[in-house]
Simulated scan of single mutants.
Amino acid sequence: MSIPPPPGPHQPQEPYGQYPQAPQYQQGSYYGMPYQPWGQGYHPFNQPAPVNGVAIGSLVTGLLCFMPGVGLVLGLIALSQIKRRGERGKGMAVAGSVLSSVGLALWALSLATGAASGFWEGFKEGARDDSSLSLAKGDCFNSPGGLEGFTYDVDSVPCAGRHDGEVFAAVEMPGGSFPGDDKVSQVADDKCYALQDSYAMDAWALPDTVDIYYLTPTRQSWRLGDHEITCVFGHTDGTTGLTGSLRNDATTLDDDQITYLKAADVLNTAMDAAPAEEYVEDDLPGYKEWAERVADALTKQAGMLRDHPWPADAKTPVGELVKDLEAARKEWAAAAEAADVDAYYDHYDKGWALTAPEKSVTAREALGLATTVPSYDYDDGGSDSGGGDTGIEV
């Protein structure tokens, strides 16, 4: 359906140019010709030609200088379109092309002098400030969403007060393409549990409510150079939080305490290497090999404790502990030579009783170490590491 013209005679005033006199019209048509709206040459408010949008883009990118190559290409395209369409914006296109050419020259110079590399490193460093990427070993922090899911920012807080997590280690992954979330989580799980003892040397001092979490890079942060896994202590529920630092290493312990804990770790490591089979009957050879490793560890532990010059109030309790360890070593060595399962169990039970955690409480008290036996110590063959996915991505 055609659009009816406005009412009244449709004739121009006295001619101002060579326009022919407009024909009379009927409703809806010019003598059978469809009615046409006002064109540019006949509009009572004649509009100027539009500005070329590509020219504007060229000028903007040229001024910002962050994509000089794009700005130059846009400028050339704009000049071609302006000439063909009769649009405005030639000055902007020329200015954008010139500025982009200068930007390209500066980029080439910076690449030759290494300035671009420095700028990019500075940019990445700035991206790490005030975020989860800026955490270092020993830092305590709060995360808006707790210790599960995703986080893009954390707040560093004093460890003395309430906090969501405490960083105890950092693991740098090799460069290259992003290995995938599953691979990153696997590395985090393996490394973080292995590194906890270097920060919290006395496992007895860790509350039962503490678990291990880790902050891992996402595919997006990996592109910015974030290849670091951050290992964190946090509450088992991820939200309750902790109070006070859990750090006990060379920065907080004296030489006597460190010597004792290093000796204890020798036995702990051997105990953690128990066979996967739950019952001795299912893998007697494997359990005999394990008993031999435990006997060797007891020999080393007893020697480390015996050779250290202990303070006066610790000499007697440490000496009594050494006697128990040496007696335990004989039983574990005999278990390693057992002819059958019954003989193994006989020596195993005696050796286990002599290495029970309660045997070391008196020596620990004399050295000023924690004396509350953890509920998980030596359970199921002595493994004291947790499991599960306790990761938070950044």
Rank of each mutant, 00 (worst) to 15 (best):
G114Y: 09
Y152T: 09
G118Y: 00
F141T: 11
R162M: 08
S177L: 09
E125Q: 14
L135Q: 03
A112W: 10
F141K: 06
E172N: 14
G165M: 04
F168K: 04
A136S: 15
F123D: 04
W107C: 06
S110R: 01
G138M: 05
D130F: 15
E166K: 02
L106A: 14
F168A: 05
G176M: 07
P174M: 01
F168C: 10
T113F: 09
G122M: 02
V171P: 06
S134P: 00
G126N: 14
V157E: 06
A160P: 00
G176I: 10
H163L: 11
A170F: 00
S134V: 08
S110M: 13
P144C: 13
R162W: 14
E121R: 13
S117I: 08
G118M: 05
D130T: 05
V154Q: 08
C159N: 08
G161C: 08
A127G: 14
L135D: 04
S134T: 10
D164S: 13
L135T: 10
F123Q: 11
G126V: 06
H163S: 06
S134C: 05
A116K: 01
E121M: 04
F119N: 02
L109T: 07
G145T: 15
G122L: 01
A115Y: 05
G176S: 11
H163G: 03
S143D: 05
L135Y: 02
G146T: 14
A115G: 15
D164N: 14
W107D: 04
L133H: 07
G126L: 11
A115W: 11
N142P: 00
R128C: 01
A112Q: 10
C140F: 06
S177E: 15
F168E: 09
E172Q: 15
G165I: 09
T113N: 13
G118H: 06
A108R: 02
T113I: 06
E148F: 13
G175E: 12
D130N: 15
D155Y: 06
G118D: 02
Y152I: 05
G149D: 07
C140W: 05
A116P: 00
A136Y: 03
C159Y: 08
F119C: 01
P144E: 14
G118A: 05
G161L: 08
R128Q: 10
G118R: 04
G149Q: 05
A115L: 13
C159R: 07
G146W: 07
